[in-house]
């Protein structure tokens, strides 16, 4: 079974060919790490799955992206509806300047769900899933700006989980965090993959090795290799993958 899939995906920003004929599919309940040097197209690829690239002018896609068997770039596809079923966690923690509670409830509120009991339940469940509940349960009214960066990032994960996404996209979610917070995020990803499909962009190869089941290596807009993480790291089929992983360029 396939949760999400890119078929012959070509992306242009104006004249710049950012992604070249990428084919890649993602199994449910798996973690796939996207690695590669800066500017290789891995973030562009990630953002195809919740149509965040649409916000960039000059963006053009050819090929198809399906999530749950549905072509999310179909003419009649509604962008906000699509984004509701796909969670995204950004590089820099970006909590809204609202209370912890309101941050988690945001995705529901913009969907018109304002029932107190439902919101309470979802907030508690999401914060528990994001391993943040114990730390903030007595301070849900506190501003999200007042907690630490690592907590903020877990709050952003909770916020994404609240809308019960099928797919979670993470764009270097730990690159702005200290090692302890990073470890917590990695543990969390390990837990989350039991119920969610996760695609994560990372610059940290060790991190990719620790947390992912599959790894895709991008270089200059091409998907060079995509395989089980263990195979990629121990015995890559491509020389360029080998060179990148062993640190000969990057």
């Amino acid at each position: 079974m396939i949760q999400a899939e890119a078929k012959n995906a070509n992306v242009w920003y104006g004249d710049f060919h950012a992604l070249k004929n990428v084919n890649m599919s993602f199994e449910p309940s798996s973690v796939t790490a996207l690695i590669g040097p800066s500017g290789c197209g891995k973030s562009t690829f990630l953002r195809l799955f919740n149509r965040m690239n649409d916000l960039i002018s000059n963006f053009k896609l050819e090929g198809s992206i399906t999530v749950d068997g549905q072509n999310i770039y179909a003419k009649d596809a509604k962008i906000d509806e699509i984004r509701k079923t796909i969670g995204m966690v950004f590089q820099k923690p970006n909590p809204f300047p609202k209370s912890i509670y309101e941050n988690v409830a945001y995705g529901l509120r913009v969907n018109g769900i304002n029932d107190r009991r439902t919101l309470d339940e979802v907030v508690e469940r999401s914060l528990k899933q994001a391993a943040l509940w114990e730390e903030v349960k007595d301070n849900l009214k506190k501003s999200a700006m007042a907690i630490s960066g690592g907590q903020q990032q877990r709050l952003c994960i909770a916020r994404a989980l609240a809308v019960e996404p099928k797919l979670i996209l993470m764009d270097e979610p730990a690159s702005a965090l200290d090692p302890i917070s990073t470890a917590k995020i990695e543990e969390l990803i390990f837990e989350l993959k039991k119920s969610f499909t996760i695609i994560i962009v990372t610059h940290n190869l060790q991190q990719a090795g620790r947390i992912s089941d599959y790894t895709g290596f991008f270089y200059l807009g091409d998907l060079i290799e995509h395989d089980h993480t263990q195979k990629m790291f121990l015995n890559p089929a491509q020389e360029r993958t080998q060179n990148y992983i062993t640190g000969r360029f990057g």
């Binding site: 965040m52 984004r83 950004f90 820099k92 809204f96 995705g107 913009v110 916020r159």
Partner: peptide, 13 residues
């Protein structure tokens, strides 16, 4: 801008 992105990503118009 990351705040706007965060909001869009949650399906807000």
């Amino acid at each position: 801008d990351t705040l706007r992105m965060g909001s869009y990503a949650l399906g807000a118009t």
